[in-house]
Design a protein around this nucleic acid. Structure first.
Length: 610
RNA sequence: GCCGGUGUAGCUCAGAUGGUAGAGCAGCUGACUUGUAAUCAGCAGGUCGGGGGUUCGAUUCCCUUCGCCGGCUCCA
């Protein structure tokens, strides 16, 4: 495809922004150096909304209180219009220079670049502005004066391991925000502030969806009645979907003997993510389960299976427990106790592809329906350097090429990443970013070549031979915790009628209407709708406001007119207009919305027509 | 787990150079009986995250611990 003019302009703009952010990282490092001459430099790249730079401050750490001073110094450097000059040093000279400067991190990196043959023409480039020199690939702005006014802001400080390795020193990372103009920075800050209003932790509390309590334990959410409705509705949907797709439900326990996880490989490969074992009775040990798969494999193995049984699809919304690192826990997004939309498909080799397609179709249905459009597909592969993967490399290659082939065949765009696989096989992960830009795996589908061996799973084929099945692990609706955290943020807490904790709030205009309201509530409740009557002594306006701030999808206003006509005045959360209709018609419409799982929380979605 | 922040009523936040704290909303009570986003009044609510230290005296200073937030690592 030939590049159009617009592509080139966009590319230039991106390149310019990249250079600006890169230069600001450099300017920040220069400023930090003026204040902390002993600070050692690590990496300082441009990133999505700005830049960061990693420093080693040794015994003289920097805090957020120091950022203002760093910013002021940066402004002074910008005002001085210092030119960026590029200099190329040959490899020896570069190493000697970095050595002399005591730049241990830069030196290590330079050494690595040289060893990997990445020193272009045998040289490494350095950029200097003012008195500050940094080994850097560039490009930079012509001079610091090209930084637009008010276009950047130092954001926050955090720790960061050198080279992302937790065994190496913890450096101090200073993040800055930077945009092409001050207006864009302001816009981004406003956007971020708005996004915080939709934060699932904030909405979870406001809407009484879930709580966490330190006496219960960190990462162990308690689901309130309202939140439990969301879970129940998702679960009901999954049951219907899985029933139609030929799955069978099973139920298995949350604690299990150590032996099972030794056999499955969880103990050698996954123990870091498991709660420590519990000693039971004399010489027995039990674990809280981190996954349901071994239990399902046991059900498969409990009897002789024929090729006629395949594919066998076992599903369970199962509670699993993972000992996540304390610092990585976050609301419902990352917890230690979760309930997973789990299933395992046992199939013959020639069924893998069609089963995989079936799973992908299920994903697409869920994501389309829920309007989760903002995701990327990741093909998660093994990594030969990594001890966390089973070392059966032929099997890895084979199963990875099967999955790749299926994705290619379906025309799905994806990005391959090494080292992200499960310990037992490659994964297709759906990666979704939350409001704060934090990306997590939501759905996953995994091809497993290892468990059939470990559990000695077989089926008798048409030729009478015992053969190994393949296993697909899949969780299209992820866990309740993670999925609901994303849905809360996507919908801003305003759920469609079918999911909403309270589906209809009845607002009688005055006390004389209470009887009609009670009758209407009974009608809805008898049809299994979640309904509330606002019989408080608040003003009418306040009652409307209360219903709206609770993000209840439907308000039915009941007054004399409605009572006389056996009607309701229906005000929806998602649209401004209100509509009057006979009460029976309103009930019928509500039933349609529930049955079709209409996404009426979006104003552009048409309601069903009876 | 590591680094940096942070912790005052159910929620959102004030506050005092160390002399035991206030507001709005929510809650409760009463009055008002209301047609599409806040009626009025009153009441109640906090050992200022926990523990230890310094001090005549600590919510304020120091130490320690826990929770929370952001990031690193890790992951559904």
């Amino acid at each position: 495809m030939s590049k159009t003019e617009t592509d080139i302009i966009v590319e230039d703009k991106d390149a310019a922004l990249h250079a600006l952010r890169h230069s600001l990282a450099h300017i920040m490092a220069a400023a930090v150096r003026l204040l902390r001459p002993e600070a050692k430099l690590a990496f300082g790249p441009p990133v999505e909304h700005g830049f960061y730079y990693d420093f080693d401050f040794g015994d003289n750490p920097i805090g957020e209180a120091d950022l203002e001073q760093v910013e002021q110094t940066m402004r002074a450097i910008i005002k001085a219009r210092e030119p960026f000059t590029r200099e190329e040093k040959n490899c020896d000279e570069a190493l000697r220079y970095l050595e002399a400067q005591g730049e241990v991190y830069k030196r290590e990196y330079a050494q690595e670049l040289i060893e990997q043959g990445k020193a272009v023409n045998g040289t490494l480039s350095f950029y200097t502005s003012g008195d500050f020199t940094d080994m850097c690939e560039g490009p930079h702005l012509e001079h610091t004066g090209h930084v637009p006014k008010n276009c950047f802001k130092l954001d926050r400080i955090s720790g960061s391991y050198w080279r992302g390795d937790e065994k190496r020193p913890m450096l101090t990372r200073i993040y800055g925000l930077a945009f092409a103009s001050g207006a864009e920075l302001k816009e981004y800050l406003a956007m971020r502030k708005r996004a915080m209003e939709r934060d699932h932790r904030k909405l979870g509390e406001e809407l009484d969806l879930f709580i966490q309590d330190s006496e219960v334990g960190v990462g162990l959410p308690l689901w309130m009645p309202n939140g439990t409705v969301l879970r129940d509705e998702l679960e009901k949907w999954a049951r219907e979907t899985e029933f139609l797709a030929g799955y069978q439900r099973v139920t298995t326990p949350s604690v299990t003997r150590k032996q099972l996880y030794e056999r499955s490989g969880h103990v050698p490969y996954y123990q870091d993510s498991m709660y420590p074992s519990m000693p039971i009775d004399e010489h027995d040990e039990y674990y809280l389960r981190p996954m349901c798969c071994p239990h399902h494999h046991k059900i498969y193995a409990s009897r002789l299976r024929s090729y006629r049984d395949l594919p066998l699809r076992l599903c369970e919304y199962g509670d699993v427990f993972r000992y996540e690192k304390h610092g990585s826990l976050s609301g419902l997004l990352r917890v230690r106790a979760m309930c997973m939309n789990d299933a395992h498909i046992y199939c013959a080799p020639d069924q893998v592809e069609s089963e995989f397609r079936g799973v992908v179709a299920m994903y697409q249905m869920y994501y389309g329906h829920l309007r989760m459009g903002n995701f990327r597909v990741r093909l998660s592969l093994h990594d030969t350097d990594n001890a966390k993967f089973v070392d059966r490399y032929d099997d890895w290659e084979r199963s990875e090429s099967i999955v790749r082939g299926v994705l290619d065949g379906l025309g799905i765009e994806y990005e391959e990443e090494s080292g992200e696989a499960a310990f037992y096989g490659p994964k297709v992960d759906i990666q979704v970013k939350n409001l704060m830009g934090r990306e997590e795996t939501v759905s996953t589908c995994q091809l497993d070549f290892m468990m059939p061996d470990r559990f000695d799973l077989t089926y008798v084929d048409a030729d009478g031979e015992r053969k190994r099945p393949y296993i697909l692990h899949r969780a299209p609706l992820s866990t309740h915790e993670r999925m609901i955290s994303f849905l809360i943020e996507l919908y801003g807490g305003a759920f469609p009628t079918w999911m909403a904790p309270v589906q209809v709030r009845l607002v009688p205009v005055n006390a004389a209407i209470l009887e009609y309201a009670n009758e209407t509530a009974a009608m809805l409740r008898n049809n299994f709708f979640r309904v509330e009557i606002d019989d408080s002594s608040e003003s009418f306006n306040k009652k409307i406001r209360n219903a709206v701030t609770r993000k209840i999808p439907n308000i039915w206003i009941l007054g004399e007119k409605e009572k006389d006509a056996a009607a309701v005045a229906w005000r929806r959360y998602a649209v401004k207009e209100q509509q009057s209709m006979p009460r029976n018609a309103a009930l019928a419409l509500l039933q349609q919305m529930r049955e079709k799982r209409t996404m009426d929380n979006f104003s552009d979605v048409a309601l069903p027509t009876p």
